[in-house]
Design a protein around this nucleic acid. Structure first.
Lengths: 129, 129
DNA sequence: CAATTATGTTAGGATTGACTAACATCAGAA
DNA sequence: TTCTGATGTTAGTCAATCCTAACATAATTG
């Protein structure tokens, strides 16, 4: 059972948000998600429905949201890219945290796994930490 | 007469394409633009119409496309970002040209002028060239 | 100049992802 | 348990951007 549809910008954002939220609270709800992503609840409901159909998460009416195995896997990849980009912006370029956060959020959808890994290695070598 | 509407992803792509094309041929036509951006001619016509209304370019029915002063200014900024990103990907990370081109194209919409300038400086210092 | 080919436009839809308004359900307090 | 406020869903829109099919104009060439 392979995933066909590529992740959209939006679904990546949703995945990452759900992953982050699920590490802080044991139940991720539509409202949390909507707040986190700055969208309205109906928007979150709609997207969750789509992602559920794509097998990225599990959600029953009025219930909590849970990533599937596939969803979690993808979410981790997305987050890894996000972090690498943010680290680059903050620690290499000196971009302020807030801006870096915002821009990493946008950029993360544009880079391939390969590039993400290269960035990762680059950071390893250049972050005196 | 200031511009209100922020540039969208698409309009940035169009601006950059028009700028590049206009440096190679003295007349930029709808078809060139459509080919360059891999969209159909009706799509190009439509977007050109919108951008014309926004004062980014000038275009009469069946005529050539020309950037306005404002459009050209924006186009240069977009292209500068694009180039900085591509250079980074190719020369710092070692991403293959083709991939770098594609990804720079996507990323360029996500970074601010400020970040773009930082990247520029970083490249100056780190490209032994 | 007439016919053909290249170029451009219009009309009509599809899709993505957001929104508001209104309704439904749930959970905690009186 | 009933009421109420928090949470979730449905229905209906909207805007951006793309598309295809069909038509219109321009340019080239026999």
């Amino acid at each position: 059972m392979r995933r066909e549809e590529p992740l959209t910008r939006s679904s990546q954002d949703y995945l990452e948000a759900i992953l982050n939220l699920s590490e802080r609270e044991q139940n991720v709800r539509i409202t949390d998600l909507a707040n986190h992503l700055q969208v309205t609840k109906p928007s979150a409901t709609g997207m969750v429905k789509v992602m559920s159909k794509q097998g990225l998460l599990q959600h029953d009416k009025y219930g909590p949201i849970q990533l599937t195995e596939e969803g979690a896997k993808q979410a981790h990849l997305v987050r890894q890219r996000h972090r690498a980009l943010k680290d680059f912006l903050v620690h290499i370029l000196g971009v302020p945290h807030k801006t870096a956060e915002k821009e990493a959020c946008l950029m993360e959808h544009s880079i391939s796994m390969d590039t993400s890994e290269r960035l990762y290695l680059f950071l390893r070598e250049n972050l005196t930490k």
